[in-house]
Every structure is written in structure tokens, then in C-alpha cells.
Design a protein around this nucleic acid. Structure first.
Lengths: 182, 182
DNA sequence: GTCTATACAGTGATAGAC
DNA sequence: GTCTATCACTGTATAGAC
């Protein structure tokens, strides 16, 4: 059951919801049909559990940099620059491309909540930076947070399209330039 | 044949490559099996033609704002702010999430070329803005161009995840703030 | 050029044995 | 709890008639 969830997380990351079949999950988890349908009502419920867990992992990973000691600029730079498997893309952002995920409120909810949390958390850090004078009073935390999150998600898209991490790194560096040159 | 290509463009946009079946294409195009397999060797070749066409359309649409009269700032703002069906996402960027597209050089090529063109074109406009003094000498055109493209692509991701255009608009506005506040 | 027939693996699930 | 059997259907394609 644990393996079913973890295998589903991996497959959703790699192939999305539409591209992931129950059979593939069972194969990857080394479990039979009966096992999967005993623990879960079907593909959708299993995916929901897997997405929720991936969302929690993403939040924990982001909090490692965003909640660390240091100035707002340092924390944001650490978050932007941390080790990432860029060409694999974002395990959560990837699901936003999936029509069946977006169409099903149960599946979309954990995706929506993860990004809502991330944007709020980034906005807090930006607001911290305004208090300390790192960022100008004119900077809008909500907008800036959305921009930061979007650069990461878009960076993944550009990198996968190019089959190269370069566009991701350029986009992140361009953002850091813009944030710093204030 | 024309209808086959156009239907494939629509379906790829909506459901991606993995989620689009030959049968669905035929249904949408109101064409039979024989017709499709007469004109194309299979799903992959038809998709390649469809992606190439969508890429050309994206370039033409972008050039409408980026190649218009006006300052660099005006052209970039017009491009960022033009009418978009945000919740549908980007017809090209969407394909970067598709494992079978990224894995097949024939399918990935038009996606890669479209974004390579877009980043170059944006970099030209940024360079124009440096010449006119709108942007500071310190601004790196390649990086900034990647950031702009990433904000759009990431904005789509955040918007679809939230089932709302708001995150897209916030991210774009945040970018405009950062570009303008120089 | 387009149609119908056919093929064979895979999808997503249910049923019942153990 | 897990296994195997079965099912109706779809995915992707080939073959051959018209």
C-alpha cells in the first residue's frame, strides 16, 4: 500500500494522470490488481492520495530554504538556486497540464492548495524583506510571490522544451537580477 | 486532411499527446481511419505537423505585439497583457509536460524551436530598450528574455492549478513592476 | 483517397476463489 | 488482503475492397 502510493507519485510525475494506468502502477509497486482495488476505490482515489503526499513533500522542501535563517534575499535566492532535477519538471506543476486533473475537483484541490501555500509563503518572505529595507516599499508581496513561483514553473517548461537546464538557469538568474537591482 | 491537422492541434492543446488518440482525432475531424493513415504514417507524424503549425501561429501572434511600433516597454507590456485564453494554457508549453513529446526528437524539435525563437525575439526587444535608455545597461537581454517567457508559461501553470486567471495576472503584473521600477 | 474489417495489446474495473 | 479470471472498451495500426 505504501509502495502503491509511492509508485503512483513517481508515475504521476513522469507521465501525468492521463498517462498513468492502474496496470503500470501495479507493475511498479509489484502488487496485484486485487491489492490495489482493495485499498483504493480506483485510479482517481489513489492519485488523490499520491498528489496530496507530493504536495506535502514540496511544501516541506520549500520550507527548508524559505524558513531558514538569513535575510529575505538570501532565503529567496537559496530557494531559487537549490538543487533541482530541472529536466524532470515539477511534480505538482506538471499536473496542471493534465485535463483530467484540472477537471476533477478532488484531484485539482491538492494542486491548488500547494501553490496557494507556496505563493503565500513567498509573499511573507517578500514582506519580511520590505520590513528590513531589502526591498522597496513599492514592491507588492502578492504579485512578486506569484512572479517568483511562475518563473520556476515556467523555467521547468522552457528547460524540458529545450532538453537543457540552461533556460531555467537564465530565467532564475534574470529574476534575481530584477529583484536585486532595486 | 486540413481538418485532420486542425483537429489534432485542438486535441493536443486540450489533452496533450499522450491523451490524444487517433480515434479521437478522426472523430473530431469527421474522417475515417483510412483517410488518416493514407495521409500520415501514424499519430506521431500527424502530431509533428500539427505542432509545427501551432508553433508558427504562436510566433505570428507574438510578433504582432513584439514587432509593433512603440518603445520596448510598450511592446513587452502589450505582449504580456494581450488577450489570452489563460485557463486553456499555452498550446506549445503544454507539450513540454508530455513525456512522449520530450522523448521523441521529431516531436520536441518544433517545441524547442518555438521557444528558442521567442526568447531570441524578446531578447532583441530588451536590447532595443537598453539602446533607448529605457532599461539600464546592467540588464542582461538573454536572462531577461528567459524570465519573461518563464513568467508567462508559469503563469499558465498557476492559473490552471487555481482554476482562476488571478495568479497569471498577478505574476505578469509583478514582472511588469520589476521591469519598470528600474 | 476513403471505407470497412480485422488484429492484438492495453485500460479500468468487477467477481469470486483463497 | 491478495490472487486470478473475466469483461467491455479503447489505442494504434494493417489489409484489402471500392
Amino acid at each position: 500500500m505504501e509502495r502503491l502510493i509511492r509508485s503512483t507519485q513517481e508515475l504521476l510525475w513522469e507521465r501525468g494522470y492521463v498517462g498513468t494506468s492502474p496496470k503500470a502502477i501495479q507493475r511498479a509497486a509489484d502488487a496485484g490488481q486485487g491489492s490495489m482495488y482493495h485499498h483504493f476505490t480506483g485510479k482517481a482515489e489513489l492519485a488523490k492520495v499520491a498528489i496530496e503526499r507530493s504536495g506535502a513533500e514540496l511544501r516541506a522542501a520549500a520550507e527548508e530554504q524559505l524558513g531558514a535563517d538569513g535575510t529575505a534575499t538570501e532565503r529567496i535566492s537559496a530557494y531559487l538556486g537549490r538543487e533541482r532535477d530541472v529536466l524532470r519538471g515539477c511534480r505538482i506543476g506538471r499536473l496542471a497540464a493534465d485535463p483530467d486533473v484540472v477537471a476533477d475537483p478532488e484531484l485539482r484541490a491538492p494542486v491548488a492548495e500547494t501553490f496557494a501555500w507556496l505563493r503565500d509563503r513567498l509573499a511573507e518572505v517578500v514582506a519580511d524583506g520590505k520590513r528590513t529595507g531589502e526591498f522597496p516599499e513599492s514592491l507588492d508581496p502578492q504579485r512578486t510571490a506569484a512572479t517568483i513561483a511562475a518563473v520556476l514553473q515556467g523555467g521547468y517548461v522552457l528547460a524540458r522544451a529545450a532538453d537543457s537546464t540552461e533556460p531555467f538557469e537564465l530565467a532564475v538568474q534574470g529574476l534575481i537580477d530584477l529583484l536585486g537591482a532595486k
